[in-house]
Amino acid sequence: MSVQGRIGRAGGGKVKRELSVQAALDWAFRVEQAQLELPPPTDVTDEGFGFGLEYVLLQQAALGCKVDGGQHKMGSYTHADAEVIAATVAGMPSNLGGIRMAICVVELARAGMTPDWMPGAVPRCVPVETKQNQYGERAATIVVGTERVKTRGKWRTVELLACPVTWRPHPEQIAYARRGYDEWWQALDWVRDGLIAGRMLREVEVTTAMPKERPWFSTQPRAINR
C-alpha cells in the first residue's frame, strides 16, 4: 500500500498528509523505522530496576521484536508523528491481543503486508495418500476387514478395501487464518480510533478508511467434493 496519502489543508492553512491507518502504520514502521516499546512486566514496581537482561532477551526471542529503550535510531531521526503512532500501537489492550497483537501489527506494517486470509481457498476431499503405478496416480487403500464370498461354487475370503480421505486445505485451517485477519482488523480499527481521537499528530491526519472487513464474504466459494 502506498504511503503517499492525499494532501489536504487543516485549519489555519497548515498542510497535513492524509493517510489511512494501514498506510500510516506502514509509514511509521517501514519508512520512519519507529520502534515499539514494550511495557514493563507486571511484577516490576516503580522502585525496581526495570527490565532485567533475561527478560529483554526472552521478549525478543518470544515476540520477534527488537526492544527499544526509547532512544532514536543511531544517526537518524524518527518523525515525531511516527513515534506517536508507535506509542499508540504499544498500548494495545489485552482484549485485542495486547503486546502480541501489537507486534503482529508492527511486523506486518514493516513488511507492507496484510494477514494471509487464504483468499480463494476451497476445501477439497482428497485421498490421504496416493501411489504411482503404470496406470498413473491412484488413491492408496487400506484393508478394513474381510468377507467370505462364494464364487464359482467355492467360498473365498476377500479383503474389504477403503480409501482414507481428508480435506485440503482443512476448513479449520481456513477458519484459523480468517480469525487472524479479523483480529488484525479489529486492532487496526482500535488504533485508527485512538489516533483520530487523540489529535496528537502534527503533520499526518489519519482518515476513517480501513482495509476490507472479512473480504472472504464477497466471493465465498463452495466446498468441492471429489
Rank of each mutant, 00 (worst) to 15 (best):
P40Q: 09
L160F: 03
T78H: 04
V158F: 02
A62L: 12
L108G: 04
G11Y: 09
A34N: 02
C125T: 15
C65I: 14
V31A: 07
Q186F: 04
T151H: 13
A162N: 13
Q35A: 15
G136M: 10
R222M: 14
V44H: 06
I142R: 15
D68V: 14
A177C: 09
S2Y: 08
G50Y: 01
L38R: 06
T219R: 11
S20Y: 00
R192L: 06
R124Q: 14
L58K: 11
W155V: 15
V204I: 15
P39G: 04
M200Y: 06
G48Q: 05
T141Q: 14
H72T: 12
M210D: 07
I142T: 10
E159C: 07
A209F: 06
V67P: 01
V106A: 04
R222H: 09
E203Q: 14
R6N: 14
T88D: 05
R138A: 14
W167G: 00
F217Y: 13
L36A: 06
R30Q: 11
R9P: 01
A162T: 10
G98F: 08
H79V: 02
N95V: 11
Q132N: 12
E83S: 11
A23D: 10
V126R: 11
M210G: 07
P93Y: 07
E213C: 11
V126W: 04
A177T: 03
L38H: 08
Q4L: 13
S76L: 12
A10E: 14
M74E: 14
R222A: 15
R202L: 11
A28R: 01
E137K: 06
L201P: 01
P221N: 05
A162G: 05
V165P: 00
L63H: 07
Q22N: 09
Y176M: 13
V89I: 03
P171K: 08
K14I: 13
R9Y: 12
A90N: 02
V165R: 10
M210Y: 01
C104D: 15
R178F: 02
D116P: 03
S218A: 13
D116T: 09
L108I: 08
A10K: 09
W185P: 00
T88A: 10
A82I: 02
Q22V: 14
M200G: 09
V31P: 00
P119E: 08
Y176L: 13
P123T: 03
Q220L: 14
A102W: 03
I224N: 09
P123M: 03
G69D: 06
V44I: 14
G98T: 06
T157G: 01
M101T: 05
G13M: 02
G5W: 03
R214M: 15
G145H: 05
A109I: 07
G97M: 04
A209K: 07
D46V: 06
C104K: 13
E107A: 13
A82Y: 00
T208P: 00
V191K: 00
Y176H: 15
A61G: 07
V126Q: 09
E54Y: 06
A121Y: 07
A61M: 10
A80W: 04
N225P: 02
T219E: 12
T88W: 03
L201W: 00
A24W: 02
R30V: 01
L58P: 01
V149H: 06
T207N: 05
